[in-house]
Design a binder for these strands. Sequence first.
DNA 1: TTGAAAGCGTTACCAG
DNA 2: CTGGTAACGCTTTCAA
Lengths: 345, 345
Amino acid sequence: MSGRDPKRPSAAVTLQDVAGKAGVSVASVSRVLNNSGRVSVKLQRRIEAAVADLGYVPHGAAQALASRRSKTIGAVIPTLENPNFAIGIEAFQRYLNNTGYMLLLASSNYDIAQEMLQVRTLVGRGVDGVMLVGHMHDNALYPFLDEKDIPFVNTWSLDPQQDTPAIGFDNKQAVIDLVNYLLDIGHRHFGVIAGLTTANDRAKARVDGVREALAERGLSLAQEMLIERPYKILDGQMALRELLKLSNSPTAVICGNDLLAFGAMLECNRQGKSIPGDISIAGFDDLDFAAHLSPSLTTVRVPADEIGAKAAEFLMSRILNEPVLPVTEIGVNLIVRASTGPPSR
Amino acid sequence: MSGRDPKRPSAAVTLQDVAGKAGVSVASVSRVLNNSGRVSVKLQRRIEAAVADLGYVPHGAAQALASRRSKTIGAVIPTLENPNFAIGIEAFQRYLNNTGYMLLLASSNYDIAQEMLQVRTLVGRGVDGVMLVGHMHDNALYPFLDEKDIPFVNTWSLDPQQDTPAIGFDNKQAVIDLVNYLLDIGHRHFGVIAGLTTANDRAKARVDGVREALAERGLSLAQEMLIERPYKILDGQMALRELLKLSNSPTAVICGNDLLAFGAMLECNRQGKSIPGDISIAGFDDLDFAAHLSPSLTTVRVPADEIGAKAAEFLMSRILNEPVLPVTEIGVNLIVRASTGPPSR
DNA sequence: TTGAAAGCGTTACCAG
DNA sequence: CTGGTAACGCTTTCAA
């Protein structure tokens, strides 16, 4: 007796069905569902009852097609295997959910081309905004997004030169602070175990930070003192082993992140080197475990959840055409713990 | 001269535009784009050129509406803050991407009601399949998904009683194996630091495993020997402190996951208890750091990436109507390391 | 306040 | 092999 199509026994309930059941037009149903436009209380009640009765669920694609808004936001991160990004994305998606938006997630595996591809796909899926990590992207990225007029935001880094929307911090400066602290307590021989800098501007900026801080004091980083590795514990361990083989091995090793630092510490233990007696180790990120290693790890605290939440907030504001500052600097702090101390030589 | 709407200067390029430019019908363009149906090489070339020229990007919502497929899969996990889920989701999304599907991600924060809500939203967004964690869901969940005829899969657990699609393992049995090992090396006094079991069937099954293994040997777990806590390092630490306060404190402590175990180990160190001399500690998951703690942590290795990938594979098969086994058991292994040993009393 | 109807950009069926 | 053309389910004018 209702208008259900007999050919599709379990077809989805549509607006039309609801309208039929409530004895009103689809327009009115749409109005109460989006509570846009005036609708009499009477109709409203009837419609709400019908919606509940039928268990109506709006058809997202149809809504998106008609309204030209998908209520969906895309994010492309290097990988969720890095706890930092996992935490950031968790906060990001939590914020979005509270505003009725959903998260379409993709990872680039630290590959610029892959990232571009993911962004294209995301845009094809109609995302209303895009979150990116870093500011090193494919050349076609910004023009592409601009042309489609899709708001985006870079995260985890801040490029003072650019006016690109970003929620992040100055990776270089953070490392400069760290190195200055190490210099101040007497270190002169530095080693660096960095992330892969090829497609990772954060990793690159951190290395630059070391160089700049050293240069300021008339020092420099020898070629062999810099080792680039993926962000894994074992890579840190192997890298430190190489560093220790050097004739003039460093008294302080700065690691691209806490995972690398953890690995480096393991190798010190294995080789009977005391930390920080023989060698100081510093990390980056302040992951949960950093405070609990022995010795506890000196590192730079990066509030990943704050970055995620603020990025979501920024995009939502842009989408809703609310005024927002294009760039937000996130505070990061040097956390001096027990893994660093004055050099013994 | 082309059909671009003068009122929307930067409107998206549509199929229509491509058809116009190539001098063919939209039908033909659609055909080559989906390479369905025969199209002459000549037309194909012309169309492909037009697509490239115009930088055409298909409109996902329109495709979804017309084809009744969103090429999107939804996943609801407790939280990305748990590295296990982060790794699983990373593998899950990577698999999907290789098949042209995208991931719509939501988290439930270990809340059944929240999970149900997320599933509703996901379905509203038109997902073609859903990945869930565990098999403890809102009562309305399965009926809802069944009614919409949307394939889903549970992960991380396996309920022998049910025939629900799942990619997981027997959490209870895994713990039974662990406890049997501890019993075999002489332990009789057990403590358990579990996750919150209220809305977490994995946590619950693990506790059940301890109980069952003990019962088998005529032992039982005293009320005060079981402490439930969120999966955080600090919670593990505090829980162990409580356990040590007990008059008859345990010689072996089984932790709900590696984070809790890490915390427990920290507290042992702090109190000068030797591991495993004074007390044995075991974890669950075998997170990256587990092998590198000192002593290295005895735990159960859970291949999160494999779970994620297989879950994706399963859903894709269901969507493509390929035959698949509804249930896949994932192998988990007890990894005996240095944090467990014979009791000293 | 309400309803009718014109899209939104594709797909897929039906002719030719 | 190709084109025309109904859907798809909803939003949004435009009238009433």
